[in-house]
Amino acid sequence: MFVYHAKLTGCRTEVLSKHKHNEPLPETVLRVKALESLLVEKGLVDPAALDELIDTYETRIGPRNGAKVVARAWVDPAYRDRLLSDASAAIAEFGFTGRQGEDMVVVENTPQVHNMVVCTLCSCYPWPVLGLPPVWYKSAPYRARVVAEPRAVLAEFGYTLADDVEIRVWDSTAEVRYLVLPMRPAGTQDLDEELLAELVTRDAMIGTGLPRSPRA
C-alpha cells in the first residue's frame, strides 16, 4: 500500500541513467564555453561569482547539513515538534536556507510508516539540507518506478520492510521539498548528537535507505 501524492507543478532532470555523463558531445562543451564567454563579455555574469557558486555546491552544501537536522530532532523533542510543524523555520535555525529549500516539509518515519521522496517530473530536491541530487535521483528509472513499485525500488537499494509497513511516496514540486526524518537506530541511547549525525546517510533522508547502525 502506498500513497502517490500527485504534484501540481513539476521540475526537471536527468533521464537515461546509462548516459555517459563524462562524455558530452564536443558541441555541448563548446556551447557552454560560448554562452559563458558572451555573458561575461556583456557583463551579465561575473566569472568569480560562478566559481563561488560551484564551490558552494561542490564543497559546502550537502547531506551533512541534513544529518545535523535529523540528529537534533532525535535528541531534542521540542526541536522535532518544530521540525514537523514548520520545517523551513526549524531548518533555518542551523542557518540552512536558500535556493530550492524555501518551502520544506519533513515527513517522519515510524514503525508503521516509511516515507520516500521523488520528483517524477524532474529533479526537485531540498538543496540546503542535501546539496545537489545524485544522478540516480534524476534518472528515468527512479522517477518512473518509485511511485509505482516503491518496495521493489527499496529492495534494489538493499532494504526490505515488513509487509504491514505502509510506504508513502512524496512527489516533490518546484515549491515544496521533502526531507525524510528516519527512525533513530536501536542501541544509540549513549550517543551524543554529533555521533548520531554520523549515522544519518543521504539515502536515509530520501527514504531509499535507513540510518547506519552504530559500530556498523
Binding site: 502517490y4 533521464v15 541513467s17 546509462k18 555523463h21 563524462n22 558530452p24 555541448t28 562543451v29 557552454v32 564555453k33 554562452l35 559563458e36 555573458l39 555574469v45 561569482a49 560562478l50 566559481d51 557558486l53 560551484i54 555546491y57 561542490e58 550537502g62 521523488v118 517524477t120 517530473l121 546539496g131 545537489l132 545524485p134 544522478v135 540516480w136 534518472s139 528515468a140 528509472p141 527512479y142 522517477r143 518512473a144 518506478r145 511511485v147 509505482a148 525500488v153 534494489e156 537499494f157 512527489d171
Partner: peptide, 30 residues
Amino acid sequence: LGGMHGFGPINREPDEPVFHAEWERRAFAI
C-alpha cells in the same frame, strides 16, 4: 515519467561526484 514502464534498473554510482565534468559545473553556475 511517474509510473512509466520499461526503464530498467536504477543505476547508482558509488562515491558519485557532485559534477561529472567541467562543462556541467559551468552550465550549473551560469
